[in-house]
Simulated assay, not measured.
Amino acid sequence: MAVLDDFRQDAASMIEWRRDFHRHPEIAFEEHRTSARIAELLSGWGLSVRSGVGGTGVVATLEGSQSGARAIGFRAEMDALPMAEKTNLPHRSLRDGIFHGCGHDGHAATLLGAASYLARRRDLAGTVHFIFQPAEETLKGSLAMLGDGLLSAAPMDEVYALHNMPQRRPGSVGVRSGSILSGADGLRIVVRGVGAHGAQPHNGIDPIMIAAEMIGLLQTTISRSLDPLEAGVVTIGTIQGGTAANIIPDEVVLTGTIRSMSTTGRALLKRRVSELCTGLAAAFGASIACEISDGCPPTVNHPDQVAVVEAAARRVVGDGLLDRNCAPLMSSEDFSFLLEQRPGAFFFVGQDGQGCHHPSYDFDEDVMAIGAAMFVEIARERGGWRPF
């Protein structure tokens, strides 16, 4: 745990960076101040830096002084959420309605800590790419960076990322092979009927009644179409329609989300939701438009890289705080796109406090030392580099 001790004894810089990012949050693809500060720090440490990747992304490359062909990537996010912060922290957000409510400020500071540490110890064999990604909350930042030549600018053999997790034991590291997070797709359904007086429903086609039937039937995609041993969710989050109690409207709009833990399950749920809409339209004589917008695939960890995370965790937190088969979550992450392109692993670091996306959430700054030490130990494990 020597590396962890180093970070714990010298955590002031990471805390300073994190609190600065927290005071000045920026939402998806608007992370101009954040990315500029990150690029400035990385350049100052002598790394080769490329800015503007995928809009506001930053990629920094560290070449080891020893010969070695392996290149690994570490990714952190930079974007905040469009929500109000409800804390009384001295470093609370200075921007109304924008808040680092998911800990991306801490993730960016954590990766900066690892980059600074490794930049001072270049007796390495191989290459490390530090990837600071925009727009994770919209599930679009990873694709934007990939589309802008990320893998050409930073050719890597494998890639790793972490996320703080209030639902896990504080100070623990959790990882698993296979799906660790679900895929997510957006759902918008427009039911068009025929308006009528509320006392004369026979003169119309009631889209509210059809929508009510639809909400229940959509759950059969989980209970009767999806393999019972596989997890999935179909949630309707909004219903909009109608103007008065005695008027049957001509249109109702529903929006929601479809989530699944496998690519086959994802395809199945999307197909069955669309088929149900078609069937209900025929049954009631209505018109139903079903729009499913692609979000991201499930986050699927690769076994070899999971083993690397486990080995690093044993050195950082010990076996007692390593959860090597942690329960997956139905949350989603666009790191999944990177894992489709390169083998890698996504892991959790546990903390106390409110859950992510809660208005009173606060990132646990103790997590940064663990996360930074994990990145350093992964680099050592994967590159066969000398002990520091």
Rank of each mutant, 00 (worst) to 15 (best):
H32F: 12
T299Q: 09
L139E: 03
R18T: 12
V191C: 06
S116W: 07
D157Q: 03
E340W: 01
T127C: 09
G174H: 09
F130C: 04
N325E: 15
I208L: 12
W17Q: 13
R342Q: 13
A28H: 12
G216Q: 14
S225M: 08
M330S: 10
D294A: 11
G193C: 09
I370D: 05
P249D: 06
G295V: 06
E16A: 15
G355F: 07
M14Y: 09
S225D: 14
Q354R: 13
A2V: 15
V253K: 07
A345M: 05
G174K: 12
R75D: 02
R37Q: 11
I370C: 04
I247G: 00
L146W: 05
S116E: 15
L150M: 00
D304T: 14
A212I: 02
Q200L: 12
C356G: 03
D6T: 09
V191I: 14
G68V: 01
L229R: 10
S331T: 15
G204L: 01
P343I: 10
W385G: 08
P155V: 02
L94T: 13
V59Y: 03
T138C: 05
N301L: 07
Q351P: 03
T278D: 13
L118A: 08
Q219L: 10
H91E: 08
F388Y: 13
A39D: 03
F21D: 06
W385V: 11
S65C: 07
P155F: 05
A369I: 02
A373K: 11
E31R: 09
R266S: 13
G371V: 11
V175K: 01
E63T: 13
I38C: 09
R121S: 04
R169D: 03
L181H: 11
M165F: 00
L94E: 15
A108D: 08
P303C: 07
A196D: 05
A12R: 15
A211C: 00
M374I: 12
C290H: 11
A212F: 02
V234G: 11
M330R: 03
D250E: 14
A282W: 07
T87F: 05
D105V: 10
L280V: 06
T87Y: 10
G101L: 02
E377T: 12
L339I: 12
G57P: 09
L139D: 06
A2E: 15
P249L: 01
T278V: 14
R19L: 02
A11I: 15
S331A: 15
R314V: 10
V252K: 01
V367N: 15
R75F: 03
G113D: 11
G383W: 12
D334H: 04
A307Q: 13
V194H: 05
R380K: 14
A28K: 04
G183F: 03
A84H: 12
T34W: 06
G101I: 02
C277M: 12
G344H: 15
G54N: 08
S142F: 01
S332V: 08
N203D: 12
A114E: 04
H129K: 07
L89C: 08
I208K: 05
A196V: 03
V58F: 01
K86F: 00
T220C: 03
E333P: 07
D20C: 13
E275F: 00
L62G: 06
L268W: 04
D250W: 00
V234F: 04
N325V: 08
Q240H: 13
L124E: 03
L47Q: 09
H163V: 08
G68T: 07
A212H: 03
D20R: 13
G371R: 02
